Simulated assay, not measured.
Amino acid sequence: MGDQATGGAGPGLGSAEASDPAAATTPGKARTKRRMPFWQEAPVLVVVALALALLIKTFLVQAFVIPSGSMMNTLGIGNRVVVDKLTPHLGSGPSRGEVVVFHDPSDWLGDEPAQKSSGNPAVRGVRSALGWIGLLPSPDEKDLIKRVIAVGGDTVSCQGTGPVYVNGKPLDEPYLYPGATPCGDRNFGPLTVPAGSIWVMGDHRNDSRDSRYHMDEPGGGSVPVDKVIGRAMVVVWPVGSWKTLPIPDTFARTGIGSHPAGTP
């Protein structure tokens, strides 16, 4: 008789289970862990989502809006493009034929306007916040988008009605805006692109203030590679304009060369 513990937990049950009537009546059943209330869980999920969005914007991809007609008809005003930012982080320089987004190297946007923000302060604030984390193109971005024509060490020129020559080879440029000439209204070269730089031109040569218009500045109109944000890969908006942006075949011609920017 003395071996029986009156009011005890019984064989195999600890004091915690003994104090829970439900556990006591169902030996061996695992207790369900209480879930965090939604009002507490939601802010955590929002913070995690924003952190991931910011991480993606910083190192992987980012959306940009096209503010001008300098890349028509490849890119129209108001088009949204997704830019690959990972490749530059891995040390791969821009290649000829790529469409790239880059920071304004020396007040080029004094010639070509950037995107304008909405006049509504509330809308502008929301757009700025979403642009900062990469969910929308930044409404106050001061970046440009052009096509890489030549890279560091290349010789590039264009006279009269063209064509553009890279390392002595003429380019076939079917992407040019209808009616635009390869040289536009600016003859140049032959000149050598400095190492670590790129020579850029818009596809609408008659409406693009690109490398041709900045030859009297440091660098001779070339853009330093460290100013490049990334390569535009695809047009995502508007839906009817969706398309990829591959490198045109003319840049793969034998004799033009294959070295990336910065490796003459």
Rank of each mutant, 00 (worst) to 15 (best):
A63F: 13
F64H: 13
F64A: 00
F64E: 01
F64K: 05
V65S: 08
I66E: 00
P67Q: 06
S68H: 05
S68T: 15
G69F: 09
G69H: 04
S70W: 04
M71E: 03
M71N: 06
T74G: 09
L75C: 00
L75Y: 01
G76P: 00
G76R: 11
R80L: 09
V83W: 03
D84I: 10
D84N: 15
D84T: 10
D84Q: 07
P88V: 13
P88S: 10
P88I: 11
P88C: 05
H89G: 03
H89W: 14
L90K: 12
L90E: 14
G91K: 04
S92C: 00
G93R: 00
P94S: 12
P94L: 08
P94Y: 12
S95W: 08
R96E: 04
R96A: 11
G97S: 04
V99I: 15
V99T: 13
F102W: 10
D104P: 08
D104T: 11
P105V: 01
S106D: 13
W108A: 05
W108R: 07
L109A: 06
G110N: 15
D111G: 13
D111L: 07
D111F: 11
E112G: 02
E112S: 14
A114K: 07
K116G: 07
K116R: 11
S117G: 04
G119W: 04
N120M: 10
P121R: 09
A122W: 15
A122V: 15
V126H: 08
V126C: 00
V126K: 09
R127V: 10
S128A: 15
A129K: 10
L130I: 00
G131S: 04
I133R: 00
G134N: 06
D140C: 01
E141D: 15
K142V: 00
D143C: 03
L144Y: 09
L144G: 06
I145K: 01
K146D: 12
V148P: 00
I149V: 15
A150W: 14
V151H: 02
G152M: 08
G153M: 03
G153V: 02
V156Y: 12
Q159W: 01
G160R: 08
T161P: 00
G162K: 09
G162S: 08
G162E: 08
V164R: 14
V164K: 14
Y165R: 14
Y165W: 14
V166D: 03
V166H: 03
N167Q: 11
G168Q: 07
K169T: 15
P170V: 14
L171C: 06
D172G: 06
E173M: 13
P174R: 05
L176C: 09
P178R: 13
P178C: 08
T181V: 13
C183A: 01
R186V: 11
F188T: 04
F188S: 02
F188P: 01
F188I: 11
G189D: 06
P190T: 03
L191R: 05
T192H: 02
V193S: 14
P194A: 04
P194E: 01
